[in-house]
Design a binder for these strands. Structure first.
Lengths: 336, 336
DNA sequence: TTGAAAGCGCTAACAA
DNA sequence: TTGTTAGCGCTTTCAA
């Protein structure tokens, strides 16, 4: 075993300076004479020296580590978020620790994050229990719930306007002349689902229309398939269905077209939510609602950095706009 | 600012033991009297103490950190790998640092990994330059190239049998009675592409058949679309196409069906590679080759842990079987 | 601008 | 089984 045994002491000896001079040469804005620094850097590169981030983190109290927690990566929305978030955070000089965890083992995972002294936590698909949220608050670690909102939580929250998104879909479907509009819910405990559903039902009510039919897909592919079979079983079937996210909408379209031989959108209109990359694929060409991921990511990084510097953790709530993306899976509103 | 300021010293005072006793109470297999340990644990939980993983890592030389590097997450193969790898590694007590990086900025990123004293590196979509590979070797950090193989590299490598996979596809297509078989390559520098292409061409040659047509898609969706347009432009078009991965195959099917109004598989057979989740979606129902991701992940974790304990880094090469997954996007071999 | 010295919170000998 | 004593590699006062 030969560890990365080159230390700042070794470099100091080589460059004929003190060990603290070496430290300063590797710290932005420290006072070192240009030529001294040069000499040190030269010695360092000759010896293959790299500062030990762990030691630096320990003494300075800044680990430059951000924990990112996600549950499932099969819904493309999350890989996409992870990629963006990761690039942005790297640009800011942070390194990401990735934790994949079901809600069950959250406790253990959060402990692990905190042991590594992360400076911030992003919860990208699970929701932090209120106990854990308070633990983080006490430690002064900012938490951002990404695409989640928990009312009385001390954690910050970045979402898109899911209520408005739900409203947009109802408007669009009603304008398209649909009269028997169904809804397939995601996870009923998720704020995204609740909000989308709320907005959707609001507009329906405003038009004195009842939702024709409803089932729960639990945000899973299989759950959505089952929900679709349920809703479209009888003779009298819906002429449109709003599915709470794209990932489920693909499953629904598969059942409709492949099992029930229904045409989309001629027989049934389908609208999803998220505008994940696959929605644009012609095999589905899904009409959906776009969440502005880039802006959500920017907001998340902003909050994190802000709170890390402020050293105060007061939950902020950021809501980004949602926007209808019209493709081919739903009948269009006619000219009149 | 109130850091996680509870230290083992605080706990020691509270429990009337020495600081090292506290350390032992939190170390498996250390010799502590059961009742002493109990008392310490009680004091610890009262104070809300959590061992500082950074300090532990520093002194013990074991950071329990594994770096995972990926380039693009839009090809579902990688999110899928990340999810599995992450769960397995967490089970083994390791924490993942995630780095998203194009090949360009690799240098900086690898430096960053090493500064955090990671105990191992998994390259999941990029390839380590030979210089960097040697740097890691010198530091004694095991590197596993996942789904990549670089001949004379000191790094280990875990792949599926891409040559065999390519052969399977050619066999299947020829048996299906296709006579004008095209190939759309991925990234020509990638070993996966080279191997799949090699196997494919081998079998074609063995049957005295020439590949009808060839274009390069670069493993991107847009690249594949362009490649498809190119190959199917003229009057005389292929009756089958082997696309070097599923992600590109979806793009190809879109162009074929949507732009050229060709039926799949009646007019053209399409075969992909990877068996990503979307392949099973009925909108594509893609015939493809499955890489045994689970076994590849297991092998990766095995190599990593092995080499971490051996403290020797000698590149291993593991090749897992590839298997044809027959769905509906390619004409089947007839009964005779 | 530089060096000496004091730790960050912990583990790992070594004695007791 | 326990406590004492050194550090791990670094940043950060404090003097010089």
């Amino acid at each position: 075993m030969k560890k990365n045994s080159v230390t700042s002491g070794d470099v100091a000896r080589e460059a004929n300076v003190s060990q603290s001079a070496v430290s300063r040469a590797f710290t932005d804005g420290a006072s070192v004479a240009p030529q001294t620094r040069e000499r040190i850097l030269k010695a360092a590169s000759e010896l293959g020296y790299r500062p030990n981030a762990l030691a630096r983190a320990m003494i300075s109290g800044r680990s430059r580590l951000i924990a990112l927690m996600a549950a499932y990566l099969d819904n493309q929305f999350y890989p996409w978020v992870i990629e963006h978030l990761s690039r942005r955070l790297q640009d800011e000089g942070y390194t990401i620790m990735l934790f994949i965890s079901d809600t069950g083992r959250q406790d253990k995972v959060v402990q692990q994050m905190m042991q590594y002294q992360v400076e911030g936590i992003v919860m990208a698909s699970a929701t932090l229990s209120s106990t854990l949220a308070r633990t983080c608050e006490k430690s002064g670690i900012p938490v951002v719930l990404f695409n989640r909102f928990v009312p009385s939580s001390p954690a910050s929250s970045v979402t898109s306007d899911n209520v408005e998104g739900g409203r947009l879909v109802a408007d669009f479907l009603i304008a398209g002349g649909h009269r028997k509009i169904a809804f397939i819910a995601g996870d009923e405990d998720a704020s995204t689902n609740r909000d989308r559903e709320t907005g959707f039902y609001q507009v329906m009510a405003e038009h004195n229309m009842a939702v024709y039919n409803r089932a729960v897909g639990g945000y899973t592919f299989e759950g959505a398939s089952a929900a679709a079979r349920l809703l479209f079983a009888g003779q009298e079937r819906p002429d449109a269905v709003f599915v709470a996210n794209d990932h489920m909408a693909f499953a629904v379209m598969d059942v409709l077209r492949d099992e029930l031989s229904l045409r989309v959108p001629e027989d049934v209109s389908v609208v999803g939510y998220d505008d994940v990359p696959e929605s644009a694929w012609k095999g589905y060409n899904l009409t959906t609602v776009s969440q502005s991921v880039d802006r959500m990511v920017d907001a998340t990084v902003g909050i994190l950095i802000d709170q890390i510097h402020q050293e105060s953790v007061s939950g902020q709530t950021v809501v980004m706009p949602a926007e209808m993306v019209v493709r081919g899976s739903a009948r269009l509103p006619g000219p009149r």
